[in-house]
């Protein structure tokens, strides 16, 4: 008979509480939602439009801001400069401020009264109530996840490898694309997934910038306030399932061996 370690047992029991906290509400919601309601909701045009909009705006925002976030992460990982700590602090700011306040901040930046809003207005475009406004609100709250993960990734690449590339005649740009980026790629992809996921689930900031077109978290809230829990549940379950499928696909990418240009994904050991 194996002896039970009291310490391990205590840890397991304490950890179990956390798991219950996560699993119980989700399981309750899944079990309370009849399959017929789920299929019916999935066929609603309004729902399909909303889920598509949510996925595309979050994905678009993540891809677009990667172009700026990844170089910034490399700078933070590799270069010493005045105000580096302040820059790092600013990047983490959206994580700690309330999301509705973040929404107000973004709205104050892009509304028609601002220079940016006026400039967009003169071109016949309005950030408020547009997918671009939604993407901005999503990015505001989610970009720290990508920058921090990418910075950790670049920091984990030995400087010696970059020096070896320079010694072999590589320009800084070639070194970045052939050494630093491929070696930090798994961290960056994790950050990408986190930013995308955080964007999908954003409600507070988005609802202030754009109630319409309606992203799914806003639609869930609207159905809950207008019609009640039972009516909101099928949409919530459906959205969770869609998000899970996307996560699985993205996570699989980091596990599969393949060669995408110079990028190689390695098997987790």
């Amino acid at each position: 008979m194996t002896r039970t370690d009291p310490f391990a047992l205590t840890l397991t029991l304490l950890g179990g509480v956390v798991l219950i906290l996560i699993i119980a509400p989700l399981a309750g919601m899944f079990f309370e939602t009849p399959l017929s309601m789920l299929f019916k909701t999935a066929r609603e045009e309004e729902v399909i439009r909303s889920i598509t909009l949510t996925l595309l705006t979050s994905l678009g925002a993540t891809i677009f801001f990667s172009i700026f976030a990844i170089p910034l992460a490399y700078l933070l990982a590799r270069k010493k400069f005045t105000g580096k700590r302040i820059v790092s602090g600013i990047i983490d700011l959206p994580v700690v401020i309330p999301h509705t306040a973040a929404g107000i901040a973004v709205l104050g930046f892009v509304s028609r009264d601002t220079w940016l809003g006026k400039m967009a207005d003169s071109l016949g475009f309005d950030f408020v109530g547009s997918p671009v406004g939604i993407a901005l609100a999503m990015s505001f709250v989610s970009i720290p996840f990508l920058i921090n993960a990418a910075r950790d990734g670049f920091s984990s690449v030995p400087v010696r490898l970059e020096q070896a590339a320079y010694n072999l005649g590589a320009s800084p740009v070639r070194m970045f694309f052939t050494i630093s980026l491929p070696l930090a790629w798994r961290h960056i992809l994790s950050g990408f997934i986190l930013m995308f996921a955080r964007g999908l689930s954003e409600f507070g900031a988005v609802v202030i910038v754009a109630y319409h077109p309606m992203i799914t978290p806003v639609m869930i809230y609207e159905r809950f306030t207008a019609f009640g829990l039972k009516y909101a549940q099928p949409l919530a379950v459906l959205f969770i399932l869609v998000c899970l499928v996307f996560f699985l696909i993205l996570r699989m990418l980091t596990r599969e061996n393949g060669n995408n240009g110079n990028f190689k994904f390695r098997k987790n050991k």
Partner: peptide, 8 residues
Amino acid sequence: FQDHAVFP
């Protein structure tokens, strides 16, 4: 280099 720095 001492640690060879072969690109992994």
